[in-house]
Design a protein around this nucleic acid. Structure first.
Lengths: 247, 247
DNA sequence: CGTCAGCTTGAAGCGGGTCAAGTAATGTGG
DNA sequence: CCACATTACTTGACCCGCTTCAAGCTGACG
């Protein structure tokens, strides 16, 4: 199952997401050190990167594609607890078993480091430790924002919230303009969306249909989405439509 | 509203929660530096420590009592996103407005630092930065565990989850034995519990009554709780009853 | 003794879950 | 190249757990 494919390595200096990743603050010397110990791994859509509870010998950054962090109860109920997009970090220094399932939902490429060398490097490279703290604090904020979604929003608001997050992250990564209609592909199945939102896939499907019927979104196929008015979508999400960018 | 009461200062070396706080890894020299710039503040039960969006000139640690972190939507729906118990850290270095409302639910005492001096100290004290990263990662895990509670658990499981968290943290702080009956006080009103669990206060009340009727908990008054069998409570919470301590 | 915040309990309604059937797109083997 | 299976999704009908609305209880405090 875990047959990761080797991917062609590229120079850190040419890395498209370096300015957002854990190595964002590194100087050329530090980058060269990283260059020497890093290795790339690819996973196909649907593959499990790591199971909760398994020993995790590496940490890494998502370069391209989308992965999910999920938690499962004994009876099978599952909750997604994180969406890993390009530049997001996987793994926790100082812990050697994975706390969550990491699953590739699209084909992904990751930039990995064996845990021990990375921890050593981190101990003597404040730039990395500092950036990791920054990223962890951002993730904590995102998790807390998601607690509001899960605890207090209606199904319709939940869908609108998810769409607006994906739309914003997509625009931010592709450095597209944030005015005018936004167009993007949903990287998640209806079931994955349901697991993210604490809903059933039937409810997800119904609410997407409803948003489409009401003109909040337009769809070409089942995954390709156009948002004609981002403000409208954010209103539907129950957020201030002030366009504040959290990502 | 924000009339914090000054509290008697005590030496860091005598601090009861130092081994769990942000200063846990500090050596005597570093502790002395902290001693010089710290100040204590007290808040009464019900007082707001800080409003979301307000300028936050300090960071700090809860020494005694309980506070909550909450998020509110325009129409008044509120979700608690964090429970601050003794040794928990408040505030985010590198950001100068508060992201959430911080409200004292019991009388509390906090150990505070003005933000700038603390940030300076952190920049040249890896022990503090390292401990803060550790604590932030723990909080992220707690937030993610809570996402499962909010997204996938029933009302009864939610209540059992909250009780088991409070029971465990209480036992851990008081260094009590973790076998045999656990006894503790609920530091939250039914409404605060509802805001934590994404429920209404009526549902909270009903489910507590149900757990009492079924012998999972015993109550003396409305806040004082006895858990005769912690394993049973954790089963009700839908968790593995393996006693794994996350806190 | 009255008041009020915090809590409990009841009755009714509804949002989202469950179960079930059907569609569309894609792959697969004969 | 077609019959068939499979995966992903949609839609409908019914039901239940939680919310909503409402009334009453309890204990602390003036």
């Amino acid at each position: 199952m875990n047959a990761a494919v080797a991917a062609p390595t590229q120079k850190c200096t040419e890395c498209p997401i370096r300015h957002r990743a854990v190595c964002a603050h590194c100087n050329p010397l530090e980058l060269q050190e990283l260059d020497e110990i890093k290795y790339y791994r690819s996973f196909e859509a649907g593959q499990t990167v790591i199971w909760a509870g398994d020993k995790m010998g590496f940490v890494g950054t998502v370069i391209t594609g989308v992965a999910t962090l999920t938690q499962t109860m004994e009876d099978g109920r599952t909750q997604m607890v994180g969406l890993l997009l390009p530049s997001d970090f996987v793994g926790r220094p100082g812990r050697d078993t994975a706390a969550y399932n990491v699953i590739a939902t699209t084909d992904i490429v990751m930039c990995c480091f064996r845990k021990k060398p990375f921890e050593d490097l981190m101990a003597r490279t404040p730039h990395i430790a500092h950036r990791l703290l920054e990223m962890t604090l951002d993730e904590l904020d995102a998790a807390r924002e998601w607690m509001l979604v899960l605890g207090r929003k209606t199904a319709r608001e939940k869908i609108a919230s998810l769409l607006s997050i994906v739309a914003r992250r997509d625009a931010s990564i592709a450095k597209k303009a944030t005015v005018g209609p936004l167009v993007f592909d949903l990287p998640l199945t209806r079931e994955a969306m349901a697991d993210y939102l604490g809903l059933t896939l039937e409810t997800v499907s119904r609410q997407i249909s409803a948003l489409k019927k009401d003109g909040v979104i337009e769809m070409q196929g089942k995954r390709h989405i156009t948002v004609p008015d981002m403000g409208r979508l954010m209103e539907e999400a129950g957020d201030d439509a002030d366009g504040g960018f959290l990502v």
